[in-house]
Structure formats: C-alpha cells, structure tokens
C-alpha cells in the first residue's frame, strides 16, 4: 500500500484538481485524473520529498477553523489600520521553535504569512529560530507566545 501510494494525500488532491479543471466526473476523466495523479506522485517520489505523516486528523479540522478565524480577525485589523490615521508599530520578533518536521514548518510558514499582519521572514535551521515581522503589535513577545501556544502546540500534536 505505501509502496504503491507513497503520497496518498498528494494523489487525492491531484485527482481532485484534475476533476475540478475538467468540470466533470465521467469515468474517462476519473481515469485520466488517476493517471495524472500517479505521474505527479511518481515525480514527487523521484524528488524524494519528505512524506507527510499526520497522526491526528481531528485536530486538522480544528487547525483549519482556527486559521480561518484568525484570517478574519487580522483582515479586519489590517483594514482598520490601512484606513485609519494611526501609524502601525511594527517589530521583528525572533521565535525559538520546537517544531522540526519540514512539512509542519512549511505549514506554519504558510499560516503566519497568509494571515495579514504577520510575515515569516527567515528561518535559521542551525538554532531552529524563525524571524517574523509583525505589522502592528504593542508587545512582540506576547504575540510570539500566542503563536507558540496555539499553532505550534497544535502542529506538534498533529505531526508528532
């Protein structure tokens, strides 16, 4: 099973992408999509991408809900900041991480950058710290603590 389908999630998402692009679920399109998905997974295993091992699927839903909620909140905050007169108080924050899994780090980077108001600048793999630029915060340390407590704890749990 793992030798035939080394990347089940990638395979399924490639198939879904093909069906969405073709806008049908005919058997023919399903077959074509399966071929495309297999080719894509073959390319991924030729590149030797690190495999995703998700331990807790229920927490993934919680993570998605949390991210959506945070994107809503920070959209509003940045909107008010752009339209208001106040100057943003930005800081660079260095956060030490316990997360080591490359996939989990990539997801954390995407979450931090996709929410308006914070951007992942660089990650140092030698001491596992990440430099984040926060657009508007009174207390950079408290902000980093929140990230560590919510997202990093959840990701550690999911990818343990």
């Amino acid at each position: 099973m793992t030798r035939l389908f080394p990347y089940p999630l990638l395979w399924l998402s490639l198939l879904a992408m093909w069906l969405l692009l073709a806008r049908s679920i005919d058997p023919g399109q399903l077959l074509l999509g399966a071929i495309v998905a297999s080719l894509g997974c073959g390319a991924a295993s030729a590149l030797g991408l690190p495999r995703v091992r998700i331990r807790r699927f229920d927490l993934v839903l919680k993570l998605v809900a949390l991210v959506l909620w945070d994107i809503c909140r920070s959209n509003l905050a940045v909107l008010l900041l752009v339209l208001g007169r106040r100057e943003p108080q930005s800081v660079f924050v260095t956060i030490p991480l316990e997360l080591r899994d490359p996939n989990a780090l990539a997801i954390l980077a995407c979450i931090i950058t996709a929410t308006p108001g914070s951007a992942w600048v660089s990650h140092s793999s030698t001491n596992n710290t990440v430099l984040v630029h926060v657009l508007d915060t009174g207390d950079g340390i408290a902000w980093a603590e929140t990230i560590k407590r919510t997202y990093e704890a959840l990701l550690l749990e999911i990818f343990r």
Partner: peptide, 18 residues
C-alpha cells in the same frame, strides 16, 4: 501608504486572502 518595505509586504495579503 505604509512607510517601510516590511510594512508594505503585509498589504497585498488582504487582497490574496479575503
């Protein structure tokens, strides 16, 4: 509007998210 580059980098995420 934002004065520095690192502040400006946050602005387009409004467009790309919501």
């Amino acid at each position: 509007r934002f004065p520095t580059f690192y502040q400006r980098i946050h602005a387009p995420t409004l467009g790309t998210s919501f």
